[in-house]
């Protein structure tokens, strides 16, 4: 009888140890997929934020404070849309991010009348399947309608700023 006890105990031991070693299911807080550095900045204590801002020249620090205030005061819907777009952008490799920055700066330099036209084209191209988009970008009509710079802006922003499917 004692032998049976010992045998049962020894056989149960590995199972008990495995159970003990298994990490218990624990509710985990899912990180916000759209989190950006401003969200992290907003989580810092006011003292920490001021300490970081104090490392910059006062005028620059003041400007950052103003811009942050404007960002934090944005309408939630508007802010969410912007965060979504920024998320797509921030996931690009650094080189592509730089291309997008350049194109966006160029877009900003376009004549005011051309900006909505270019923007509309990008939005329309995003709706098209890959092959149709390529056909459109290579069409005579497209080339005749947009300047080479606009074509480049449209091409790159359509390709790089496409929201994840």
């Amino acid at each position: 009888m004692p032998c049976k006890w010992v045998r049962s105990a020894l056989l149960s031991l590995p199972i008990a140890l495995m159970l003990a070693a298994a990490p218990p299911a624990m509710p985990q807080q899912r990180p916000d997929p759209l989190e950006n550095s401003i969200d992290r900045w907003n989580r810092m204590s006011p003292e920490e934020r001021e300490r970081e801002l104090a490392k910059l020249p006062p005028a620059r620090a003041r400007l950052i404070r103003q811009r942050l205030r404007r960002y934090n005061q944005m309408q939630p819907q508007e802010q969410q849309a912007l965060r979504q777009r920024y998320q797509t952008f921030s996931q690009l490799p650094a080189a592509k991010q730089e291309v997008v920055r350049q194109r966006l700066r160029e877009f900003r330099q376009l004549p005011t009348a051309r900006q909505p036209v270019v923007h509309h084209e990008v939005e329309q191209l995003r709706l098209l399947p890959e092959d149709q988009r390529e056909a459109r970008l290579n069409s005579e009509e497209f080339r005749g309608r947009y300047s080479p710079q606009e074509q480049q802006i449209i091409h790159d922003l359509t390709e790089y700023l496409e929201p994840p499917k």
Binding site: I64, F107, H119
Partner: peptide
């Protein structure tokens, strides 16, 4: 909360502003 450098926030604000301006 991890410490974020003010310059990093400034860069993000620049990018957000560029992206924000690319809209109808």
């Amino acid at each position: 909360a991890e410490t974020v450098r003010a310059e990093q926030v400034e860069t993000t604000l620049d990018d957000l502003e560029l992206l924000r301006q690319f809209a109808p």
